[in-house]
Amino acid sequence: MQVLIDRYHPDTSPYTQCYDVDESMLSEGMMLLQLLQHLREQDPSLGFRSSCQEGVCGSDGMNINGKNGLSCITLVRDLGQRIHLRPLPGFAVIKDLIVDLGPFYQHYQAIKPRLAPEPSVAADLGQELLQTPEERAKLDGSYECILCGCCSSSCPSFWWNPDLFPGPAALLAVQRFVVDSRDIQRKERLEALNSATSIFRCRHIQNCTAACPKGLNPSRAIQALKHELLSQ
């Protein structure tokens, strides 16, 4: 089996390295991350991020055979005899599979991802802000985002305007607060998206939804946000 990895170090020109992997070392149910760790034991210079190894921290987003995903929850056996790994597209590469997610985080920060409850109620720690199960259910599908970047990295609108278009992850985060019954800044959050270079750059090609390793649907969230914004 062959594993091809797009290698990059600023001191040399980029190249694709081919690792021949003996299939006897692959265990049943082995994840791609384990394979990468194995490769790094032989070649310590191989660069990739990882942390939780179970798909909840979002460290190890990468492009796997042309599709973005998390290496720790991608089965090696599903990837065929030739696995080609590339860094997440649309971001500056720092080293090998490590990209600079700075712009991605900045968009997240820019949407003010913080619950803004009624200040008088929020100051009272003697009681909870009540929320019915139905109101809470509206948050399902948006609060679970792990900020891995797989969605934004697969979005042409984000590739074109990485500095202006918030990208699916940040817009999903907006939706998380817009639908939260405890939040009082719904209007401001929507108004902040009302420019030609923000949410309306999304053309709903749904690459984001196809890429999301957590099975979330940013495209639908963006559609819902547009609808809210238009019916304001």
């Binding site: 913080r114 619950l115 409850p117 929020a122 720690l125 802000l129 929320q131 019915t132 199960p133 109101e135 809470r136 948050l139 609060y143 607060f177 939260d180 405890r182």
Partner: peptide, 8 residues
Amino acid sequence: HMGVPFSR
């Protein structure tokens, strides 16, 4: 109050 989406 900080926004943790507890189940209800």
